[in-house]
Amino acid sequence: MNRGYFSRTGLVIGLAFLYLPILSMVVFSFNNSRLVTVWDVAHSPTLKWYVALLSNQPILRAAWLSIRVAASAATGAVVLGTLVGIVLARFGPFRGRTLLSAMTTAPLVMPEVITGLSLLLLFVALEQLIGWPRGRGMLTIILAHITFTMSYVAVVVQSRLAGFDESLEEAAMDLGARPVTVFFRITLPLIVPAIVSGWLLAFTISWDDVVVSQFVAGPASTTLPMVIFSKVRLGVSPDVNALATLMVLIVALGIVISSLWMHAMSKRRERESQLAIAANQ
């Protein structure tokens, strides 16, 4: 059997497995029929569900809430996660390092139901003890999302720093820079790519989280995935397809743009290095 034939078959099957569900959702978002599974040949394709979305206040409100939650959670996670990442990568062996390292990565594999439940219990207990956070709403969702997204940031930052020689920071100190200057002029610029990708990662994880939000959300705070989830329980309506298609589009655009940019950057770097080597021969 031909190897090329085999790998092509694998590619087709793999892609189909991953993207047929999304493709069918996209197709049905242009369906005129109210019944999701019946294709209305006469009046499709149509954009009417997209137009309907624009006037659907609960969905717009939920989307706005989700954006604010995801942005705040990602920002909080970046601050805490970066600190943890730097400590793990740079502070050498200290008492409790192994524990911190294990505890940082544990939330990555913790079942979300357990994370959500324990956070809810914590918030309730805290409210009874110190009166904060008062009730459950956007604040509790943000706090909950920070706790389980900062692990991702920490891991990304730590691995980026591990790729750089510690002597860079030592050289800066040797040249007379104080620790604060070393951090802002050397360490931080080096890990900016990791911080950006950590922020994006935290944003997308927070953006599509249902389980944890479900536990810690209050009556007035419904995020977009929670709206979709509750709508689907009452039966899938085509406007959900349209909404989901938009979400996929936004994420896909983001990925394409960032990967194109990264590709261009690495190409440029490679070319410059080769020029430098060529100029020396």
Partner: peptide, 12 residues
């Protein structure tokens, strides 16, 4: 001042 084995030039 020290000259490091890896040179430790700031890449950025």
């Amino acid at each position: 001042n020290m000259m490091f084995q890896s040179y430790a030039l700031f890449p950025h």
